[in-house]
């Protein structure tokens, strides 16, 4: 019992320390914004490396996210006896508000957040970050700023694709599996579509991207202990980003989507 509490306390302390460290990095990141113009080239490079290359994966998961949401919605409609012609409304809202932003962000955290931490963690344990500092180059400006900004822009960009592809996936399932016409589905989708939902989804996505980039860099910077340490930091990066994404998502739900 006492041991369990002690363990819990230790986790609590390390969690608070991590959050504190992330805020300190955030402060340094904001300070480095005045040298943004010097990092633009690196930023564009990161947009490509982190974002464009994630597109195929986002497309594949989005097809199936759309497909399963249409299927499950139809299943529940049947259960409560709701008319299937409202499928487009229900699926459209769910995809645009929640599924595309949250699932894209989580996939992005697994692919890109982990990649950022592994790269920066390796640079840390092989003294490359020390080497940058020894040359008077700020690692925050040179490494963190381009990556965090690239994530901030890329997640919303990917979510636009995810929305589109997921709706197509849902449409296909509706036609083939549920047997409603494409007109009925698309009419429902258009009927319930609100630009504000779409924009709010993208705002969430931008915040999620920012979290992924910042947590990824923080974990990379604080890596120690060789290859094993890099593995540990990478796992922690994905876990922390995912938890923060889901917490922030709930906060957004309460603030942006009033019941």
């Amino acid at each position: 019992m006492a041991n369990g509490l002690l363990e819990l306390g230790r986790h609590g302390v390390s969690f608070v320390r991590t959050i504190g460290g992330i805020f300190i990095l955030l402060g340094r990141l904001i300070a480095s914004l005045k040298e943004l113009h010097r990092s633009l080239g690196l930023f564009v490079e990161q947009l490509y490396v982190l974002g464009v290359r994630s597109l195929p994966l986002i497309v594949i998961i989005s097809i199936f996210v759309g497909a399963v949401s249409a299927w499950q919605a139809a299943y529940q409609f049947k259960f409560i006896g709701a008319p299937l012609r409202f499928l487009g409304q229900a699926v459209g809202k769910a995809v645009v508000i929640e599924l595309a932003p949250v699932l894209s962000a989580i996939v992005f955290a697994g692919r890109v957040g982990a990649g950022i931490t592994a790269e920066m963690g390796t640079m840390k344990v092989t003294e490359q970050i020390d080497a940058l500092e020894s040359m008077g180059i700020s690692p925050v400006r040179y490494l963190v700023l381009p990556r965090v900004l690239a994530c901030l822009f890329m997640v919303p960009f990917l979510v636009i694709f995810a929305n589109f592809v997921a709706i197509v996936g849902a449409l296909v399932v509706s036609i083939i599996g549920v047997q409603i016409s494409s007109e009925t589905f698309l009419y429902g989708f258009r009927d319930s579509f609100q630009l504000s939902d779409f924009v709010n989804g993208l705002i969430k996505a931008a915040v999620f991207g920012f979290i992924i980039g910042l947590v990824g860099c923080y974990q990379g910077f604080n890596t120690y202990g060789g290859a094993q340490g890099v593995g540990r930091a990478t796992t922690a990066s994905v876990v922390i980003s995912t938890v923060l994404i889901l917490i922030f998502n709930f906060v957004f739900a309460v603030i942006l989507f009033r019941i």
Binding site: E127, D130, S134
Partner: peptide, 13 residues
């Protein structure tokens, strides 16, 4: 730091 040059033990390229 710009007045220094450092060779790291592991080279750190």
């Amino acid at each position: 730091r710009q007045r220094f040059g450092m060779l790291f033990q592991s080279a750190a390229l």
